[in-house]
């Protein structure tokens, strides 16, 4: 398995000006934030965007990460079309219009 696939939309090592990242939430988490599925955060990097998201919406932290600080196993976080689990670092530059999507893993039938 290739652990470092092409990062669609990601620009490792490229630091940008402050950019607006679109955040997409699943319905369950949107309920926690009053029904808002689409948010915006401003940041220079993906890590900065995540930090800003959790600062602006602190209720999300417990739902995305467990007590050990690890991402919850059945939560997927996508930077544009790239699952962030595939990234070696979130210190990648972001641009206006980039998306950060929270998805709940679905399996079974």
């Amino acid at each position: 398995m290739d652990l470092a696939p092409d990062l669609v939309g990601a620009r490792p090592g490229e630091l940008n000006e402050m950019a607006t990242v679109q955040v997409r939430l699943p319905g369950l988490l949107a309920q926690i934030l009053g029904g808002e599925k689409n948010l915006e955060v401003e940041a220079e990097t993906l890590q900065g965007a995540v930090d800003r998201l959790l600062t602006d919406y602190p209720a999300l932290k417990v739902h995305l990460y467990d007590e050990s600080g690890r991402q919850r196993p059945h939560v997927n976080l996508f930077y544009n079309e790239t699952n962030t689990r595939w990234l070696s670092s979130l210190e990648v530059g972001v641009q206006d219009g980039d998306t950060f999507t929270v998805m709940q893993a679905v399996s079974g039938g």
């Binding site: 369950l28 988490l29 926690i32 602190p58 209720a59 932290k61 417990v62 739902h63 995305l64 467990d66 007590e67 919850r72 059945h74 939560v75 709940q104 893993a105």
Partner: peptide, 26 residues
Amino acid sequence: SNWFGAALHRSPDLKEWAQIVDGPAW
């Protein structure tokens, strides 16, 4: 939630709810 863990919420009227950010936690 099997995906998103446990949390505590508060409401003044059983209609509008807000999550308690510093709820019980290890």
